[in-house]
């Protein structure tokens, strides 16, 4: 108990408090913490175009991955939920494999797979006759974003599938039997029984997907490094750049980076809070 308290205090609670403290100082990360600047880091953030660019890009990425993953994962989960389906465990394993593999490694390998010249994706698309000329995936802002959304959705779909499956398995079987007796079609059953009953699970899946996408770092950092330009520089990369590199005028700016971290952290926390409340309400309505 005591070592746990020390660890949690030192590595979770203390950092949360200290991030707020740092955010009020101008500080390169070494030397005395004595240049108190009040809220100036925050006003600088709010005036920084690149900050808002990162903020917006984070949300575009999040919207893209959520819109792609949630329905597809649900569809696969419904197919795999049938007990008579041959090989359901094998399929489940295959869809889950990308989840356990290392994001940073996947990001690096995907650079090669999405390469303009003779990349696997371009070669495949050309072979199928879908494109005439290779797409320069990671050299243009929009296609780099699309590539990231595709790879992230591919990688983390498995976990959403497992969550949906857990939800599907908790639904009362009697309702489905009753629907069958009443002669409801697959679509009617889906529309009037499955969907309404799955709403509480859906909110939880949504919450996890959003937070995961908003805080993704490894995959993006290794695959595009935020580029080309700042086209895929999401919030976590923006913070990293100011905190640990000498990109912005010589010294790292830990105070400034902390302020950006606090602003973004609070945003993510508020979103989680609202969605958790929604999840709780949805599951109460069901009872």
């Amino acid at each position: 108990m005591v070592p746990q308290l020390i660890l949690v205090t030192a590595f979770t609670l203390y950092p949360i408090v200290m991030t707020h403290v740092y955010s009020l100082f101008e500080w390169p990360g070494f030397g005395p913490l004595d240049r108190f600047v009040g809220l100036r880091n925050y006003t600088r953030i709010l005036a920084d175009e690149l900050f808002w660019n990162a903020f917006q890009k984070s949300f575009i990425f999040m919207a893209g991955t959520v819109a792609l993953q949630l329905p597809l994962a649900l569809l696969i989960a419904i197919l795999l939920n049938s007990e008579r389906l041959y090989g359901r465990n094998v399929y489940r394993t295959l869809f889950f494999i990308p989840v356990v593999t290392t994001s940073a490694v996947i990001g690096i390998v995907m650079r090669s797979i999405f390469a303009s010249h003779d990349g696997l994706v371009n070669n495949g698309l050309q072979l199928l006759g879908l494109i005439d000329r290779p797409i320069r995936w990671l050299a243009q802002g929009d296609t780099a974003m699309i590539a990231l959304i595709l790879v992230a959705s591919w990688k983390w779909l498995g976990i959403k599938m497992i969550m949906w499956l857990a939800g599907l398995q908790s639904l009362p079987v009697e309702l489905y039997d009753a629907a069958k007796v009443d002669g409801a079609s697959f679509w009617q059953t889906f529309r009037h029984i499955t969907v309404p009953l799955l709403v509480p699970v859906g909110v939880v899946v949504l919450l996890f997907s959003m937070v995961d996408a908003l805080t993704a770092f490894d995959l993006i950092f290794t695959m595009t490094e935020g580029g080309p330009g700042f086209a895929t520089e999401f919030m976590e990369l923006y913070i990293y750049r100011y905190a640990f590199t000498s990109f912005a005028g010589g010294l790292p700016q830990l105070g400034y980076a902390s302020a950006a971290g606090v602003f973004f952290g609070v945003t993510v926390f508020l979103i989680s809070l609202v969605l958790s409340l929604l999840a709780r309400r949805a599951s109460q309505v069901r009872r």
């Binding site: 949360i16 991030t19 976590e236």
Partner: peptide, 21 residues
Amino acid sequence: VLYAATLFIPKGYTIIPVYQL
């Protein structure tokens, strides 16, 4: 409750003080 709340904190939020520590 405090323990549970820390689960929702993004990593970029705490890495700087952890580094300092």
